[in-house]
């Protein structure tokens, strides 16, 4: 069976800057995977190459066995991604946004699932509000909702909780855990290490375009007895 995500020797330059310096990574189906690292480590770049937003200079990436370049339609259909930056289309309401996004993925009559997502992200009361009139945290929730319209087997969340209030954060994690329980593979980047510690079964630590540590959360923690994931993070980065 193909891995949920398979990344082989991916290199990406932006001009002279080497954003990804040969990254290889395999994530199995059903994993809850954490991608951690300081600002500029290359997390978003790696995720963007997986989603086809950025083209790798060399190396290959596949989603459930489908190459993101050669078989891009399959690969994209299987992936749901929450971008790091808050972006929105100011012309539409929340519901219109989600219906349109469903259509892009080839889905009509998706309202039952849209309602369920709205409910879980506490957006039901904002369904008919224009995107411009939402607060920053609400806009981010809509981004999460947009990534889920097609029930993607692989879900990538690039700092989904930045700027989101405590209550929703817990609601979001409950929802994402449920999706993970139902078999969806989750890939998460976050700077809230307690979140990663509590949620992720396996973690990769990135620094300057490289993966410098990759193990189960339990093993990483065991290497530094008594410490938190934050201690592990700091020590690994300074090695």
């Amino acid at each position: 069976m193909a891995a949920a995500v398979s990344i082989v020797d991916v290199v990406k330059h932006f001009g002279a800057l080497e954003a990804l310096a040969g990254v290889s990574l395999e994530i199995a189906e059903g994993e809850f995977f954490g991608l951690l690292g300081p600002n500029g480590a290359g997390k978003t770049t790696l995720i963007s190459t997986l989603a086809g937003l950025v083209r790798a200079d060399s190396g290959s990436l596949a989603v459930l066995g489908h190459d993101v370049v050669k078989d891009y339609r399959k690969a994209r259909g299987l992936l749901g991604m929450v971008p790091q930056e808050i972006v929105f289309d100011p012309f539409f309401s929340v519901r219109e946004t989600l219906r349109i996004q469903s259509g892009y993925f080839g889905l009509r009559h998706n309202d039952d699932w849209i309602d369920e997502i709205l409910e879980n992200l506490d957006l039901t009361s904002k369904a008919d509000t224009n995107m411009r009139r939402l607060s920053g945290g609400m806009k981010r929730r809509v981004l999460v909702a947009q990534a889920l319209v097609h029930k993607p087997p692989v879900i990538v969340l690039d700092e989904p909780t930045a700027g989101v209030d405590v209550e929703l954060r817990q609601g979001l994690w409950q929802f994402v855990r449920r999706l993970n329980g139902e078999g969806h593979t989750i890939i998460l980047t976050t700077h809230y290490l307690e979140e990663a510690e509590a949620l992720c079964g396996r973690i990769a630590l990135m620094k300057q375009g490289r993966i410098i540590a990759l193990d189960t959360t339990a093993n990483l923690m065991a290497a530094h007895p008594g410490g938190s994931l934050e201690d592990v993070f700091v020590r690994t980065m300074n090695q």
Partner: peptide, 10 residues
């Protein structure tokens, strides 16, 4: 940046 919404789908 809303171009991502049409770049991500197949």
């Amino acid at each position: 940046g809303s171009i991502v919404f049409v770049l991500l789908p197949p």
